[in-house]
């Protein structure tokens, strides 16, 4: 099954629940009408929140850059000795 079909199915199921809610009126009608809006807004909030949290906890590794520089120096030295052209910079 294509993935978009799964998502569509999920949406259809949600709408079915919503419509039945509208008809049985367990919730006040005015509230029920707004449910899809709540859904979209909370999905958006969830997305923004996840991006925000991801940014705050973005894993960084400044130490790795230093280690890499050491590796580069070591590699250049070895390769130069073997006659590989690694430039002069």
């Amino acid at each position: 099954m294509k993935h978009i079909v799964k998502i569509m199915a999920l949406l259809v199921a949600l709408s079915a629940v919503w419509i039945s809610l509208l008809q049985t009126s367990v919730l006040p009608k005015s509230q029920t009408w707004l449910l899809p809006l709540y859904f979209i807004v909370s999905l958006g909030c969830y997305g923004l929140l996840m991006v925000g949290v991801g940014l705050m906890h973005f894993p960084t590794c400044p130490h790795e850059a230093i280690l890499l520089q050491q590796d580069v120096v070591e590699a250049k030295e070895f390769l130069k000795g073997k006659g590989v052209d690694v430039g002069t910079d």
Binding site: G47, M50, V51, G54, L55, F58, P59, T60, C61, A65
Partner: peptide, 19 residues
Amino acid sequence: GGVHGWNLMRKLTSRGANV
């Protein structure tokens, strides 16, 4: 894991894309 050398914009797009 981790990333080094990305500016805020690049981190933002990366996180957004991932979410």
